[in-house]
Amino acid sequence: MAVTGAALEREAPRRRRRVSGATRLGVALFSPALVYILALLGLPLVLAFLYSVGDVTVGSVGYEFVGLENFRSVVESPSFRRALVNSFVFTIASQVIVIVCANALALALRERFRGRGLVRFLILLPWVAPISLGAIGWKWILDSIYSVVNWVLAKMHLVNLFDPPMWLGRPALAMASVIAVHSWRMIPFSTVILLAGLTSIPKELPEAAAVDGAGFWRTHFEITLPMMRPIINVALLFGVVFTFTDMTVVYILTRGGPYDSTQVLPSLAFQTGVLGSDLAEGAAISMFLVPILVAVAALMLRVAHRAEVV
């Protein structure tokens, strides 16, 4: 803030007098939001933890402490182990795709060209349209009988139309499909965030590098990308956390099948806790998400912090 020394001195006594009243008002203005968040997010989280070490089903009234019993039965189930591995595969694979694609896309959209506004808007569309809609569209495209993808591939003589690939019916293909659709959903959001990071880089730097003889790729990897590190971290943090806790794409496309091959932790927790009415075990499964998320968040924040300092 550009305030001269004299102005600061004149301001100081007045400000000090004002502080206590303003601070009280500040607290008064801030507390409703804080109380609301604590009551409807913090408290349920504590309860969820209590559920996970208790004996609670949808019908039950009482509560009995059972210690780590739920966790033991969860860890021992093959579905859970499968879902844990799947969650990591799903999150890492889709985030790698998302960051690479969003980066390229953000670079392209930084340029001024005819129709850029339209392209930007159209790319945002998958994010605005309900994901259930996008997922239904994809489900239809990957349908076992009416798949338009298969039809095109058959025309190109790449697949046999009478024995087409079952995009959602074979374990490996189903996983690949779910990852592709989730990436489809996440790229717009990351692109917009990265675009913001790109526009905040002073234009002079890459231009100076270009004058000094650095090519496009060299400028990109040695100047633009390092400067974008903090913003990439933000996009990645949001993306990882969101992907790890979301089940929409899996639920609509495959419901976790075939044979649990696309089951991820959130969808398993949903099936067990809500559809299966075993609140305690569902809560126990979702508790496994928490330490992993905290670790990811702490790691990312540290990386972001360091990047800012350097």
Partner: peptide
């Protein structure tokens, strides 16, 4: 208004909101 620890509160609020919705569904 310079609420003391405002940034921390902001970060905390954001961190809480990142917790999986599925965890709080049952409670």
């Amino acid at each position: 208004l310079g609420v003391r620890g405002g940034r921390a509160l902001l970060g905390g609020a954001l961190a809480i909101s990142m917790f999986p919705p599925i965890a709080t569904a049952a409670p």
